[in-house]
Structure formats: C-alpha cells, structure tokens
Amino acid sequence: MTTMKTVMSERSSAPVARLAPFTAPDEPAVAVDDLFDGDLELIVQGPEIRNDYKKIAGSSDAAKTYDTTAT
C-alpha cells in the first residue's frame, strides 16, 4: 500500500493539499461486536443465503412486496 506519508515524506505541505481531494475520508468504526457475547464466527455465505429470496414471511418479490402479518 502506498501511503500519503510515503509519497509525501520529502515534499512540502502544498502537494499534500493537492492530493487531499483524492484521499478517502476516515470512516467511523462500525462497533457492533460490543453488543454480543461469545466468539465471533465469520462465514462465507452460500448463494441461497446471499441471494435470499424470501417468499411468504416478508418478501421483496415484485409480485408480493409486503411485510408478514404474523407477529
């Protein structure tokens, strides 16, 4: 990875400002794991999960776009 520091280490501040529009912003961390207990298990979702096409129990089907009425 090429960092701004690597590129700019021997240059003045003007070039740094010049590249600022190209620099990705710092993003706030997504800290959801504090909410949970136990080990974090990461998986590779299979096609049937990542292309989940729910039918009756809530659906994004073009013909049946509705929330389930079951509670």
Binding site: D34, L35, F36, D37, G38, E41, L42, I43, V44, Q45
Partner: peptide, 8 residues
Amino acid sequence: HAAPRALA
C-alpha cells in the same frame, strides 16, 4: 459475514 451470536 458473521454468524448470529448471543447478546451480551
């Protein structure tokens, strides 16, 4: 992706 977990 994470698998479902128990809440703290």
